[in-house]
Amino acid sequence: MGVVQNIADDGLGGMDHNFVTARIEDLVKWARSRSSWGASFGLACCAIEMMGTGASHYDLSRFGMEVFRASPRQADIMIVAGRVSQKMAPVLRQVYDQMMEPKWVISMGVCASSGGMFNNYAIVQGVDQIVPVDVYAPGCPPTPETLIHAIETLHQLIEDGEIMRRRVSNNGGAGVELSSELAAHTSVTIGTK
């Protein structure tokens, strides 16, 4: 059933590129960019702005993104909104591993992107040490407009196929080894131990 089997595979990996498969590929990319459900990973201040982005004024649902799935199994984009503490980091990684390919990560706000002003013992200095990040949204917290811009950028990258190519070239992302994680991730379930 599952069409996508590994990280570098977008489900059409085995196909030769001819006229027909190219159209299918385009269709798939179109679908993925139009319907990317978020995994709600709200942590701190940014989470409030993230939810604000989903509310009436900014309305993420225009992009087909009002479906924030609580279960990471069904989500496509993880928006890491807020500072990631050392205690939270394993959880973040666990949730990321529970997400199914293809998956993308937006690092929202400076705390998630670089630790921000909290350059201390407690905060992970950049979530890209834990999960591969595709788009960084600057700001403390980023305004909804910034987040929407980040999402639009990601959608464009998905539609171009840019991200998949990048993943293939660096085996998953920013210096994070994925193969060693994937073996363990099936037994973990969200919310329970």
Binding site: L43, A44, G82, R83, S85, Q86, K87, M88, V91, M117, F118, N119, N120, Y121, A122, I123
Partner: peptide, 22 residues
């Protein structure tokens, strides 16, 4: 503790002028 940010420690490193940001 999953959002422990060490703000009280950071507060010691910031001046009273900067403390508000913390």
């Amino acid at each position: 503790g999953y959002l422990h940010t060490g703000m009280e420690k950071t507060g010691e490193a910031l001046t009273y002028m900067q403390g508000g940001t913390n």
